[in-house]
């Protein structure tokens, strides 16, 4: 009777000792080996599971949001990101028109223009005559429609998940902020999202530019907008110097807003300096024309 009891006490003691040793080793190893540990300090479970595939997963989640934007249909050549850029272009156009009056207005978020998704006639003909194709054409939606702007909350789970999976995916932050600002009318939350995005992507000029646009258009916070734009300007230049892909059109947009603010405070020297920088980019039309108009005496 005593022997089995002693054996079980010994096995419990051995198990507890091993567990304590494993716990102590787990705590001690990161201190002892510091930066030489195979796992990067602070990396998440998703980092461990997905590694470099995070960006691909994150982008597929953005595509899923696009699919939702089109009523569940995958439409090539028309994305919610395109519409985000339409907001930008519309807005710059409005700025161009309203720069003289100093007023700001947001664009219509539900624009559907500029797309042509008609299927080929022969394909449609085949579908009509083959019974399987006929059924599939009726069962599976292939029409082109956009989500109403007041239903944009349906996109949020996917943008949120895309940002969680890969915080380095700028589109996840930009598109979420754009939908929350333009479609759901919550610029404060949009600005907060962009600020979180900037913390994760400290080198991103695009996130700074979008934050500046919200500060300028929704909150009329000109000092904060100017600070954001100057940071965007610096980050764009740093990206160019370090050999990263620096989009000239992005710089043109940054320069447009900087010129607009310089014009507002009658800082002609700065305005001309930025206009010269815009000319050096060698991009004509759109924002560049607006900058030239602002630079006119």
């Amino acid at each position: 009777m005593l022997i089995p009891m002693r054996a079980s006490i010994q096995s419990v003691a051995a198990t507890l000792t091993l567990a304590a040793a494993a716990l102590a080793l787990g705590q001690a190893l990161p201190f002892v080996f510091g930066g030489r540990m195979p796992r990067v300090v602070g990396s998440s479970l998703l980092d461990q599971l997905l590694g470099d595939a995070r960006l691909a997963v994150s982008e597929s989640l953005i595509l899923k949001a696009d699919e939702y934007y089109h009523g569940g249909v995958r439409v090539d050549g028309c994305t919610h990101a395109d519409h985000d850029h339409e907001h930008d272009h519309d807005h710059e156009h409005e700025q161009e028109q309203e720069a003289d009056s100093g007023a700001h207005a947001d664009s219509d978020p539900d624009s559907e223009g500029g797309h042509d998704h008609e299927a080929g006639a022969s394909h449609a003909e085949r579908r009509r005559h083959h019974p399987w194709r006929w059924i599939n054409a009726h069962i599976h939606i292939s029409e082109h429609r956009h989500l109403a702007s007041n239903r944009s909350q349906e996109l949020m789970p996917w943008y949120w998940a895309a940002a969680r999976v890969d915080p380095g995916n700028l589109d996840a932050w930009l598109l979420a902020a754009d939908a929350i600002n333009h479609d759901l009318g919550n610029p404060a939350e949009a600005l907060r999202i962009l600020q979180v995005g900037i913390r994760h992507n400290p080198g991103s000029a695009e996130l700074e530019l979008d934050a500046a646009r919200i500060q300028l258009n929704s909150f009329r916070d000109i000092p904060a907008a100017r600070a954001s734009l100057e940071r965007a300007h610096t980050k764009w230049k740093q990206a160019r110097e370090t050999g990263k892909d620096a989009d000239g059109h992005l710089k043109m947009r940054i320069l447009f807003y900087l010129c607009h603010l310089a014009k507002q405070r009658d800082d002609t020297a700065v305005l001309i300096r930025y206009a010269d920088e815009a000319r050096d980019l060698g991009i004509t039309g759109g924002a560049y024309d607006a900058i030239l108009k602002l630079a006119e005496p």
């Binding site: 939702y68 009523g71 569940g72 249909v73 019974p131 399987w132 059924i135 599939n136 009726h138 069962i139 599976h140 939606i141």
Partner: peptide, 30 residues
């Protein structure tokens, strides 16, 4: 088996509405 004929998930999720009775009847006949 063309099991994709029976998949109305997209219509349910994105509120596209039901398919016509003739299509539903054809699918059930299949």
């Amino acid at each position: 088996p063309h099991v994709e004929f029976f998949d109305l998930r997209r219509r349910v999720i994105h509120e596209w509405g039901p398919v016509g009775a003739d299509v539903a009847a054809a699918v059930m006949l299949y």
